[in-house]
Design a protein around this nucleic acid. Sequence first.
DNA 1: GTTCTAGAAC
DNA 2: GTTCTAGAAC
Length: 771
Amino acid sequence: MDVDGKSSSKGEEEKKKNAMVVILVGAPGSGKSTFCEHVMRVSTRTWVRICQDTIGNGKAGTKTQCLTSAATALKDGKSVFIDRCNLDREQRADFMKLGNPQDMHAVVLDLPAKLCISRSVKREGHEGNLQGGRAAAVVNRMLQKKELPKLSEGFSRITFCQSESDVQAAIDTYSALGPQNTLPSGSFGQKNPDAKVQLGIMKFLKKVDSPVNAVSKGDSLKDSVSTDKENDSSSIGREEVKGVEEVKGGEDLAFSSLESTSSFDNVPTLAFPSISTADFQFDLEKASDIIVEKVLEFVTKLGNARFVLVDLSSGSKILSLVRAKAGEKNIDSGKFLTFVGDITRLYSGGRLRCNVVANAANWRLKPGGGGVNAAIFSAAGPSLETATMERAGSLAPGKAVVVPLPSTSPLFCREGVTHVIHVLGPNMNPKRPNFLNKDYKKGCEVLREAYSALFEGFASILKSQKTFYEEPTGKLGSVQLVSPVDFKIPRKNQFSNADQKVKREDVYESERNKKCKGLHGSQTDATNGNDDAQNEKSNGSMSKAWGAWAQSLYRIATNPEKHKNDVMEISDDIVVVNDLYPKAKRHLLVLARYEGLDRLADVRKENLQLLRTMHDVGLKWAEKYSSEDKMLIFRLGYHSVCSLTPAGLLMFSLTVPLLFLAPSMRQLHLHVISQEFDSKHLKNKKHWNSFNSAFFRDSVDVMEEIDKFGRATLKDEDILSMELRCHRCRSAHPNIPRLKSHIGNCRAPFPASLLQNGRLLFATDKDGTNQ
DNA sequence: GTTCTAGAAC
DNA sequence: GTTCTAGAAC
């Protein structure tokens, strides 16, 4: 014992020896503060609660402030609660150095996400939708990233609480702890994964790999969202978490097909400003060399991903330097572009889809200053600041931090940006503190480092979203209805080739679909039209019979005036009706009033204007409904009905009656459907998958494909029998009732691909901004 | 597209 | 015994 201490008595030394650090781990609303309060109220031990939310004179402070206060309290012999989320290992690491290793405890408040969300909503005070939504998004996001603590991090004791009664037991344990007492070491309360649920899911997924194996396929790129699932036995959405992770690692599940549309613009894209060349006055020549060098390095590493250097001013010198140098290096112009425009309005202002945007941040990672940093924080709304602070408190030059953007952010809804990467470059501005005094050796080094960190951050996002961008596997992609265009032709030539082919196709079929507004009534009652000449399809090979039930839409489109009670809108081109068996709160159909357009497979380039009209009408109704109920999110699209596989065609040629191949309603119709899928009519796998797999073709993508290639790609009906997955968090569910109960609660953000290209329509405020 | 129902799955 | 799916009829 230290004999040098003048003032400290033996008793105080004892106290100091037994002072402990308890790191609370839990999402907002998990009850960390309440836990501390309960213990502190009755404990005979002296506790100090270090709460990051209030440490700055009652307001939120920094991690450093927490560390300092905790160290001071420990020095005074007080025990310490670290009351902040501490959900990942990195966040906990600095606090681990505080106390005696034998008295480092963690108490994990691992309660159901739903509970945390409802508590944090209440705590926000004003419970508007936005607040609620924001709280839910924050909690969900944090829980997705959570890494449960392990003894190997340096804890002597970890207590897992997965229910209110667990929490109460832990409160009792710590409350009873006198100044001299200690608690046994070890890990307590962590329940084993529910084997039954797990088995069911595994069997259901027809996988034999253990989830742990499936998840741990890493590559050398640093993955900012990778989590160690070995310890994940929490009760919080366990099934969901495993389901998602499983698929991320799995290689051949039907999953990938849902998100993979054939749209070329569904390409992961990073938009970034030139780092350090504006306010930090970095030499433009040198900076442009480094940009080109780093892009060249990563462009090959990252497959089909695109990089876009963005600058607001049209005469931008850095852009022209970079363009020239990229040209010299023969960088694929399809993968590296320069773009003049507002980096916060790339899609809404420039039709350029970028799912990741880099921010030239300041070291404090705070809004303000000018230029890109101010613009991005302002466009993204306060949720970016919150999400950023969850990831890091500050940033060193040459470093970057990836921040998933909450789905409540306008940048997310409006622009389809799912992540912001803050990056800090070297400072060459003599008017600013800590500038590098003309030291370009160091400066270039730091700038290189900054771009590497940025691009690696982008790579980590791609890796975590890999499955969303993967092409369908051959097994699932037996998508026939042979398209005239090979979708894999090189980008550079795709437009010219496609146009030529489409033109030939157009000539060949130009007589097919003629607009026929004055539909004659005599045909409309032909309900058994097996020999109906109109059903003849000009691609020559088949005529098809439609069952009586399948003709109802055709009859409405033909004679809307006879169905006045059902029809909501009529024009020369379209008729709008409610779906007779709605699969969501709002589900309506925009019918095409064209003869010969029985289904999506019949649509050609000459019908593009019609598709646009249908889309606009659909949009109008979606907007009307979401203004009435802001919770409703809409999706517009077509069913891929009836493409024949080669096997199907062969069968057709051998056997004549093909009624069974006509599963859907006759007459091209656009579904406008709200995404909560709360409907008693949604009863089976086919219902779900027809709106939540690649079978559902988004209207925006269909229009684009028709425009570019003259045809829409269709998916085989096989995918309708694939497993049931939540359209938001992608978790798998064994049957419809279980899926429905899950989607009733799931508030996870939608998959990145759905948020792009305006595939999902969110409610807008009066001033036109998305919520 | 839905409804009905046998029988599989739980 | 009850729940749920999937195939046939319409």
